[in-house]
Every structure is written in structure tokens, then in C-alpha cells.
Amino acid sequence: MSTETSGISGTSGTPAAPSGPAPAGFLRRALRQKRFAFGFTVTVLVVLFAVVAPFFAPYGEKETAGPPYAKDGVFGTDYLGQDVLSRVMHGGQSVLAISVLATLLGMVVGVLIGVVAAYAGGWWDEVIMRLNDVLLAFPQILLALVVLTALENPASWVIILLIGASHAPRVARVSRGVALGIVSRDFVVAAEALGEKRSRIILAEVLPNMTGPLLAEAGLRLTYSIGVVAALGFLGFAADPGAANWGQMMNENRLGLQTQPWAVMAPVLVIAIFTIATNLMADGLAQISQRGDD
């Protein structure tokens, strides 16, 4: 279809302008939405728990509290006789830190790739997205596992790097899609015609109009980060095999599920609550950014 409207006078329908909402009002409006408000509150609570709990834990991280798989304490003890409650309280920090950093890394790299591909267009876009497709052929966990094959004990930064790298192509695809809808708009063309610097066009004209969808994507990526971090722990790939870690705890105590279910169920439930909350939050953000000023 031509972009010209060829009625004899003005078309009556005003073309819907999918304008992104202003950042300040965004959070306020978001909090009025039930789904986001719930997800956000629970996420904040879990994060607070992970950050503060180690200071209140009744036992140390690697301290033996009693015989293995005993019913002592709130949640009993684990396969080494460590207190499950204390392990859960200690085990959040690393999961949280790794997830957040990996999400940040994946978002920054992915958004950069996606926006540059969309803005450059043509041949560049084609090549960048083809290479992106190659990385997309690896399921997220697979990319991490393949690299871990040749490493002995992966350091935390390696895990952050791997999870971030597995997010980047997915974020790139999403942000390219969002950016494509923006770079074709006339205000970007207008900036081009004025001769604005390309970097300024991306930073000042394109990116501010993407915040809504990108926030939603970040929430989704955080959910997946938590999942992958926990999964790596569950599969037994962690920097410090003795440290408390929600994912690892499930693996360590799996054989005792019958006798001492809480040793597994406590970390399982925390992860489930955490991921449900972040996902609700992400979806709330997505809905608000889609609906615009509604």
C-alpha cells in the first residue's frame, strides 16, 4: 500500500500513534495494574530475603547442625547434616547476583546488536541477523554446557558471561523487531535530514521510544536467568561445589526426597515463587507498554 492517502480531503481516522509512555508516569501506572503490582511486590520481597537473610541465618553456610536428613529445625537438615533453612537463607545471594548481572549483560549486548541492525538496515541487517540465527540454534542451556565441557570448575564470571551470551541473540531479535517499527517513522527520518549524528539518533530518538518493551523483555530475561542459573546448579556445574546455592541444593538432596523432602522442596519453592513473580512482573510491563496511554 502506498503511504499516501488519496482522499480529496483529510482522512478522518487519526492514525494510531503507538507512542511509548513517559518514563516517570510509567511506573506509577504500572503499579496500578494488579498483575504487575503483585509480581513486583513478591520479587522485591524475595530479593530482600536473599540480600538480608544471611545475616539472620541460625547456622553458617557450611556449618554442620546435626545428623544428615534429620528433622531438626524448621526444615530439617540436608545430606551433610547442614541446616536447610540456613542454607536457603545463604543460597540466594549468588543466584540473584549471577542472574541480575547476566540479564544486564545480555540486555546491553542484545539491544545494541538489535538496534544497530535495525537502524543500519539492508546488507548489515541481513548479515547480523543471519549470524544471530546461528546462536539461536542453541537452546540456552546448551550453549553454556558446550563451553563448560572444556573447563574444570567454572568461575562465577564465566557463568555470568555464558548466560549473558545465551540471552543476547534472543534480546537482539526482540529489540530489532521493536526498533524496526521506530526507525521507519518520520521523526527518525527528520533527524537524518537535519544531519544529526547517527549515535545521537540511536540514543536520543530511537532508544527512548523502546523503554516499555525493553523493560518487559528484561523482566522475562531475568526469569530465564534465574531458571538457567538454578539449572546449572541442579546439574552440578557451580563455581564452589560446597557453597549454598538454591539450584545445587536440589541436586545434593535429591536422593533424600523421600525421607527429608524439605531439603529439596525449600529451594524448589523459593525458585518457583521467584520466577512466577518476575514473570508476572514482566507480563504486566509488556501489557502496559503495548496499551500505551490507555
Partner: peptide, 26 residues
Amino acid sequence: QTILLALAGVPEFVTGILLVALLSTS
């Protein structure tokens, strides 16, 4: 939609362990 959304967020092995606890061990 809320149920689906909640399920979509939970990692698959966490769902798996919950199913095991519910239907085979506990």
C-alpha cells in the same frame, strides 16, 4: 491466563521436582 503465566515462568526441572514430590514420593 494467570495460571498459564505462572507456569510459563517456572523452570521445567522445578515443575518436574514438584510433580515427583506430588505424585511419586511424598
